[in-house]
């Protein structure tokens, strides 16, 4: 895997999210997993079982932190208490890079706990890049900004989403967490070609890739992370890997979570794109089987 400065020159393969329903399996069976992604906010606490469990995971596995509330696009400076807790956690996990979302979600000290889309303006580029630099300087580790899935677009936008992403990461000199499922979801909601997105991002800045499942409704697609990865997303992933080279890849599965084995098997389907010589030795593995999209009412 070609490492780069945006992922701490780490040679990581396919990982999955660390989730509570899998703890028993992980501790009992000690499966081989290249790395786990944790949601930082779940461990930015003072004590208790979650931190104890994390320490046990860290004894055996590599962990990368992913955040959901830094809101690089919010107008206010980052919360210092948030940054201090996050930095303490990075010291604990020794995460080689840290990711969060290219979105906003707080205003005047009030938090929405949602990943809200931004107006793609040059003013927003400057403000967002400045905040990413502030976070990166404070944490002293590489930051990767993730593209979000969205359901709305602003009249004020002056560029496409991928142009905005490119402007921000160049100005902030940070990495990209390229979520190909989010690209697909947004492309269907906004009517653009998802391959235009993947073909126009700076491949050399991609630190990590997210894959996930989504749910299709009559008039829009929701990013639900409760399904296997669907075929159009695998096709985008294949194109992304063509451009970036083999890159650390993570399957997100956050709701209706199936067994550890099912999640891990789904994630390892990525290996056929990362390393065509890879053959899975997991029983019941169905690498390459197509997954069809179902419209929900």
């Amino acid at each position: 895997m070609p490492p780069n400065r945006f992922n701490g020159f780490c040679d990581y393969g396919v990982g999955i999210g660390l989730r509570v329903p899998h703890y028993d399996h992980i501790f009992a069976e000690k499966p081989v997993v290249d790395w786990f992604e944790i949601i930082s906010e779940n461990y930015m606490i003072d004590g208790g079982r979650a931190l104890y469990t994390l320490d046990q995971i860290l004894d055996r596995y590599r962990v990368v932190q992913h955040g959901v509330s830094m809101y690089f696009g919010s107008a206010q400076p980052a919360d210092r208490e948030h940054l201090k807790r996050l930095k303490a956690l990075t010291r604990r996990t020794k995460t080689p890079w840290l990711s969060d979302h290219l979105c906003w979600g707080s205003v005047d000290g009030r938090y929405t706990h949602d990943l809200l889309p931004m107006p793609y303006t040059f003013e927003a580029v400057r403000a967002t890049a400045s905040r990413i630099r502030e976070v990166q300087d404070f944490l002293e580790i590489p930051i990767a900004a993730e593209n979000v899935s969205s359901y709305a677009e602003f009249h004020q936008s002056e560029m496409t989403e991928w142009e905005f992403l490119n402007e921000v990461v160049e100005a902030a000199d940070c990495g990209i967490l390229l979520d190909v499922n989010n690209i697909y979801v947004s492309s269907q909601n906004h009517g653009f070609d998802p391959f235009d997105y993947v073909n126009n991002i700076p491949a050399e800045r991609v630190a990590q890739i997210h894959i996930a499942g989504h749910s299709k409704f009559e008039k829009y697609i929701l990013d639900t992370h409760d399904h296997p990865v669907l075929d159009p997303v695998w096709r985008l992933y294949a194109r992304a890997i063509e451009r970036t080279g083999p890159t650390a890849t993570l399957l997100e599965w956050d709701d209706n979570i199936p067994s550890f084995q099912e999640v891990h098997t789904e994630a390892l389907k990525a290996m056929q794109y990362l390393d065509p010589s890879f053959t899975s030795n997991i029983p019941g593995d169905s690498v390459g089987a197509p997954t069809l999209e179902v419209v929900q009412s």
Binding site: R19, A50, V68, A212, L222, H225, D254, D255
Partner: peptide, 11 residues
């Protein structure tokens, strides 16, 4: 208890 938060839309 479900003590995890994520960035996915959930029910």
């Amino acid at each position: 208890p479900s003590d995890m938060m994520s960035n996915a839309v959930s029910e």
